[in-house]
């Protein structure tokens, strides 16, 4: 019995992971020169992507995703449809409130809508939390770490050779999402890879079909 607390403590310690170490710039001049990567939308945009879903590295299906996103108001409207044009899911997120307009099974769970909106925010919007650290990772990449209101950590990382990556960690340091922008030049949203670490891990490969800026007035009307 005496060993039980120790066992629990051991399990707890092993279940907690540590966030990658970000080394602070060595001089104030270096710190000043260090710019946080920002692969996020700078204006309101409508994007259409072909989305390939993969489980255990094998392609399962391909769908079309439409995203309408305003980085200023953080308003999101999104839809998922099949290649044949059938809309499986349609929802809006305004000031944190999610309104599902259409959801066919199995995309009709509250969790699906919430997770999808969170993933869209992670890809297209700058983190809402405060910046906690900025510096250099052990591989030389520039990284900025944000602390979200819900306790999650978001690292935005850029590497000259590998491009930009966003990583979302739980408050315990467990990696939950990894977003990789595969294009280092041109439209950064041309090819995006999302790796989700859930009960069943999956990945999404998003290939841009079309993108267009949206006029402020028309977005309001929509």
């Amino acid at each position: 019995m005496k060993g039980l607390p120790l066992l629990i403590l051991t399990i707890f310690l092993f279940s907690c992971q540590t966030l990658p170490l970000i080394n602070a710039p060595v001089s104030p001049a270096e710190e000043k020169a260090l710019t946080c990567p920002s692969p996020f939308l700078k204006e309101k945009y409508r994007l259409v992507h072909a989305i390939e879903t993969r489980v255990a590295g094998k392609t399962q299906s391909t769908i079309i995703g439409v995203t309408l996103a305003d980085p200023y108001t953080r308003f999101i409207s999104c839809a998922i449809m099949t290649a044949e044009g059938m809309v499986m899911f349609e929802a809006d997120s305004d000031h944190g409130a999610i309104k599902v307009n259409r959801a066919l099974p199995p995309l009709d769970s509250a969790d699906f809508a919430k997770n999808m909106i969170e993933d869209i925010k992670l890809i297209f919007f700058a983190p809402g939390g405060k910046i906690q650290k900025k510096g250099i990772l052990s591989d030389g990449a520039t990284a900025c770490r944000y602390h979200e209101e819900n306790g999650d950590w978001i690292d935005v990382i850029t590497n000259k050779l590998e491009g930009t990556t966003i990583k979302r960690y739980s408050s315990f340091g467990t990696l939950k999402r990894q977003i990789k922008f595969n294009k280092t030049s041109g439209n950064i949203y041309q090819s995006i890879e999302l790796q989700a670490n859930e009960t069943f891990n999956y990945s999404l490969l998003m290939t841009l079909i079309e993108a267009q800026p949206v006029e402020s007035e028309s977005l309001q009307k929509e």
């Binding site: 409508r46 439409v66 309408l68 839809a79 349609e90 079909i209 929509e222």
Partner: peptide, 12 residues
């Protein structure tokens, strides 16, 4: 394909 979220139809 026409829907509210699209400003112009998606052509396939």
């Amino acid at each position: 394909k026409s829907m509210k979220i699209l400003s112009r139809p998606l052509i396939s």
